[in-house]
Each structure stands twice: as C-alpha cells, then as structure tokens.
C-alpha cells in the first residue's frame, strides 16, 4: 500500500473518531453568541468538565430563539443550575415532566399559588431590609 493511501486511511479513522474525542474548549474559544448565552458561567467555564461544556453549548444553540423574558430567566438561573448535582438535575427534570402532565387548569392554580408565595417572600424581605436597626415590635 502506498504512503498516500496509508495517510488517507489514517485520516478517515481520525475523522470517524472525532465525535468521541471532542476536547474541552476554553472560554475565549467560544463565539460571541455562545459567550452571551452562557455569560453567567464565564468565571468557571474553563473548570467545567468537557461533557458539561458540550451540554451547555447545546443549550446555548437555542438561546437566540428565546424571548427577552426567557433569556433573563435563563441568565438568572443558569449559575444555580450548573452547581446542582446530576441527581438533583435529573430529579428536577422528572418533576418538570410530571408537572407538564397536570391538567392546564390545575397547573395555572399552582402557578398562581407559587407567585403569591414568591410575592409574600419578596414583601417580607423588603420589610426586613427597610426596618430600622433595633426594629419595631412585631
């Protein structure tokens, strides 16, 4: 077999193995769009495992299709999400899927209830921060 044929075979083998050999990418190697989508993770990106980076890059591909509100939510939650254990994330996915099967009317009720709770928490937090030191009696 000639040398050119051997090189061609080596190239084909290498190309076939590429999907299994995707290396981790430094933050600076990401495109501007990817950096924008994953901006909350810029500080720890280089320390993330390669599989985690690949997963997040897949998520970043969908970023342009999101509404401004969804983009805001994603940025607000991404750091917390990345710090969860794989088991916690899987549990969240299962709960999300289960919640999707709940009838729409019930889902809306739950959403309203959660929104009320969140609003109460926010009011309580702002009341605590606004209270003068030494505080009024409850």
């Amino acid at each position: 077999m000639q040398m050119s044929h051997r090189l061609a075979v080596f190239g084909i083998v290498l190309a076939l193995c590429l999907p299994a050999w995707a290396a981790a990418q430094p933050w600076t190697a990401l495109s501007a769009a990817q950096q924008e989508a994953l901006s909350p993770l810029s500080a720890q990106w280089n320390n993330l495992p390669q599989t985690e980076q690949q997963h997040l890059l897949k998520m970043a591909r969908k970023y342009p299709q999101l509404t401004p509100l969804q983009k805001q939510r994603l940025h607000k939650r991404l750091l917390y999400w990345s710090q969860l254990t794989p088991e916690q994330r899987e549990g969240a996915r299962q709960k999300y899927k289960a919640f999707r099967k709940v009838p729409p009317a019930t889902r809306e009720q739950v959403k309203r209830m959660v929104e009320q709770q969140e609003a109460e928490k926010a009011r309580a937090a702002s009341a605590v921060s606004a209270a003068p030191t030494g505080g009024n009696p409850p």
Partner: peptide, 26 residues
C-alpha cells in the same frame, strides 16, 4: 451516548419556565 442523554431541550424549558427553579429542585 450524546444523543440518547441529550436533555438540553428539557433543561432550557426548566430554566425558562414560569415557575421558579426551586419548585423543581429538592
């Protein structure tokens, strides 16, 4: 392995959902 364990769609949906993330996370 990459395609069978691809949960990016679900993860995006959770992270952009109306409900806060804490509702789904233990």
């Amino acid at each position: 392995q990459q395609t069978s364990t691809d949960t990016s769609d679900e993860d995006i949906a959770i992270l952009t959902d109306d409900l806060p993330l804490q509702v789904y996370v233990d």
